[in-house]
Design a protein around this nucleic acid. Structure first.
Ligand SMILES: Nc1nc2c(ncn2[C@H]2C[C@H](O)[C@@H](COP(=O)(O)OP(=O)(O)OP(=O)(O)O)O2)c(=O)[nH]1
Ligand SMILES: [Mn+2]
Ligand SMILES: [Mn+2]
Length: 334
DNA sequence: GAGAACGGCCAC
DNA sequence: AAACGTGGCCGTTCTC
């Protein structure tokens, strides 16, 4: 179509979302392709997949895989319920199909606040980050305010989600190039932002360096519970391969510790539901979130119990909190 | 027809 | 060529 070629990939030129967005005004077909892509994704990956896995009782029973990920997270499949749309207003509607086991029950969910940043604060000991969490601060929100020049309390969901990408991106080794693309700013501006981040949180930089050194010396890194990830390419002479290994090494103790914590919580919640003879059920796990089919008469106990049992296994030098929601379905809990 | 590689895109 | 990490599932293309 005589449109400018952009990102080169193995098979030719990329037509991904980022590329097409930049061509949106250069040819009338482009917005149509984008809309088609989005609708096709929704139909084939969610509607068709979920319909295909319905049991004769019209239920879905995903498999939680305990031996797939390199960090200790669970994964889910058949269907995957850990990637159900939430960011787009239209696609998010699909969450309305996740309802309680019985008509008279409700959905209850609890999600850890800023979980991996809290673990990072603990593992790195960064003074500023520890202080912020001790004071009840929200680093995602603070980043969103800085990036989008927003006053107190004027952050949208999209903006906070974008700030998460930036915060986790930087702490897990994002380059100025990567940040520049994510924020649609110049390379030098991105480099400045990263510099300021590490000036504010110098302990995070030190943690990155320590973790890389440990991976090189030991050949593995560990979570707080002692789970190891072996890092094989950490001494590669190929810079691309070596740096990839370094970023994986930095990430694994943190993502893995978050998994350690929620797993301990799940075991204790399961035992407590049993012990108290409760009929509410733990039905979904989405990495740092638990979803329950909740019996109304058990609501008060369940809220208190889940909150307590999720927070207790996180034995960190900063507070760990969960935020909860409830409603007739998963959509309403958000 | 099965399976792998790829690009793409949904979530955390 | 690649420059946050961890996943699963899709359609296309290619091979056997
Ligand atoms: N490396 C990386 N990790 C991510 C990303 N998004 C989410 N995660 C990880 C780190 C988060 O702490 C964890 C849980 O995701 P959430 O969406 O619940 O975010 P978080 O708990 O940080 O903030 P919250 O207070 O719940 O909104 O998953 C990402 O874009 N990159
Ligand atoms: Mn969370
Ligand atoms: Mn979450």
């Amino acid at each position: 179509l005589k449109l400018p070629a952009q990102k080169k990939i193995k098979t030719g030129y990329s037509t991904n979302n980022e590329v097409l967005l930049s061509l949106e005004n250069m040819h009338p077909i482009v917005p149509g392709i984008l809309r088609h892509r989005s609708l096709a994704k929704f139909k084939t990956s969610f509607l068709d997949v979920i319909a295909g896995f319905l049991s004769k009782e019209d239920m879905i029973h995903p498999v939680y895989n305990q031996t797939v990920t390199a960090t200790g997270r669970l994964s889910s499949s058949g269907p995957n319920i850990q990637n159900i749309p939430v960011r787009g207003a239209e696609a998010r509607e699909i969450r309305k199909i996740f309802i309680p086991l019985r008509r008279e029950d409700f959905i209850f969910r609890a999600d850890y606040s800023q979980i991996e940043l809290r673990i990072l604060a603990h593992l790195s000991g960064d003074k500023k980050m520890v202080e912020i969490f001790k004071e009840g601060g929200d680093i995602h929100e603070a980043a969103a305010r800085e990036i989008f020049s927003r006053p107190e309390g004027a952050i949208t969901k999209d903006e906070r989600r974008a700030a998460k990408t930036i915060n986790f991106g930087i702490v897990y080794g994002m380059s100025p190039y990567g940040l520049a693309r994510a924020l649609k700013i110049s390379n030098p501006e991105a480099a400045g932002y990263i510099d300021r981040f590490f000036f504010t949180f110098p302990g995070v930089k030190a943690y990155q360096e320590e973790t890389k050194k440990a991976a090189l010396q030991n050949g593995f890194v560990s979570t707080m519970a002692g789970r190891r990830r072996y890092i094989s390419n950490i001494d590669s002479r190929n810079r691309t391969i070596r740096e990839f290994a370094e970023r994986a090494a930095i990430n694994a103790p943190i993502q893995g510790t978050a998994a350690d914590i929620i797993k301990e919580a799940m075991i204790n919640i399961d035992a407590a539901l049993e012990k108290n003879g409760m009929n509410s059920k733990m039905i979904l796990q989405v990495h740092d979130e638990l979803v329950f089919s909740a019996v109304k008469s058990e609501g008060a106990v369940l809220r208190a119990m889940v909150t307590e049992l999720m927070e207790a296994p996180a034995r960190l030098r900063v507070p760990v909190t969960v935020t909860t929601g409830e409603g007739e379905n998963w959509y309403e809990c958000g």
